[in-house]
Design a protein around this nucleic acid. Structure first.
Lengths: 203, 203
DNA sequence: GTCTATAGCGGGATAGAC
DNA sequence: GTCTATCCCGCTATAGAC
């Protein structure tokens, strides 16, 4: 009995996003999604045609959520340091909501790379705000306010330091011999650590 | 016609390591492994009982290769800075050989986390040399030679900066708008970049 | 729009001949 | 040790009734 029309599609999509990107059930089947959502499995095919299409839609929508604020932040006229701090803040908050998004994309990317029939679900290009941001980094380096090297390293360092500790959480907990609570405290300190690396206080 | 006795087992194992960790075919089937090795698929079951057991063996052997030198380096009496540089050198060299090992372990770890029957293929514990290394980091911080914070951040930063740029290579190439050659040059510069972050020149 | 039933395949594992 | 043949299961997708 469909009380609210067209709501099932949204329910399935939201459930898929939660299962894949929030809970990290990376190999979840369509049956798993359907059960979690409390709907019949065939409805997934009815609304999204195939599992692959569902995943593509879910990734797209989640990335859109991610970029909603970050694009504005990167395009703003704020000084680089403030802009970067805001960006990191926003990114970490999104990542807290979907901790497995990055690793999921990585796996899909790695798999798709090997297929002959290049059904490129992911065609990530350099977003325009990133280009602008890179130019600003270069400028800041030229003015001697941050150490000078290839600006790509700045981006790579930033993403490395934000993403790796989250996607490798179970491993790093073991390596550092920390429990859940202790590691969470570490994660809470990350923003400050990262800022100090990207903008060394002494220079 | 078995010319060399017991060589098939090694061939299968080496092929699995190559396919999984070097080529990154993370979802490769036993048939894929067998075809690549040029042997019959049933031989995998004959020698390794199951696919899962094959993977466990492959991971174990590869990790052992990884740790062969690094344990010696970390346990040595060298000063922290030299020791760290040697460790990074060794780790990056291994990672160049098996670029997908870390992401493979991450995925397996993530999946296994959800199973009820906790057949823990991976039971990574904090190795003794790491414990010693952490103590040395703390000591160096107390002497004011590197910035003072929770020593776990030092480890997390180091591994983040080494591993992320490799496992996320395709994505980062897109984000930074770099081609294969350009990104390779970036990777070659990583050691110096990482050392400057872990041991800031100015402080 | 939602269900049941079923097709179809791809993958892992085993039995048994050689 | 190595092969062929076969079994069985889990998963995706579709046909068709309601």
């Amino acid at each position: 009995m469909p009380i609210i029309d067209c709501q099932t599609e949204k329910l399935i999509l939201d459930t898929a996003m939660r299962v894949f990107f929030a809970e990290g059930r990376i190999n979840a089947t369509t049956q798993d999604i359907a059960d979690t959502a409390g709907v019949n499995r065939t409805l997934i095919n009815y609304y999204f045609r195939s599992k692959k299409a569902l995943i593509a839609t879910a990734v797209k929508k989640t990335q859109k959520e991610f970029m909603r604020n970050s694009d504005l932040i990167l395009s703003s006229a704020l000084p680089l340091r403030v802009k970067t701090e805001n960006f990191i803040d926003d990114f970490l908050k999104n990542q807290y909501k979907y901790p497995f998004l990055e690793s999921f994309i990585m796996v899909e990317f790695t798999n798709q790379r090997l297929k002959k029939n290049g059904s490129t679900v992911f065609s990530i290009k350099q977003p325009a705000p990133i280009k602008k941001y890179l130019a600003e980094i270069k400028n800041e380096m030229n003015e001697g306010r941050i150490p000078k090297y290839n600006p790509s390293h700045f981006l790579i360092n930033m993403f490395s330091l934000m993403i790796y500790p989250v996607i490798m959480k179970p491993l790093q907990m073991s390596v550092c011999n920390l429990n859940e609570k202790e590691y969470q405290e570490i994660l809470n300190e990350r923003k400050q650590i990262i800022m100090n690396i990207l903008f060394p206080p002494a220079v």
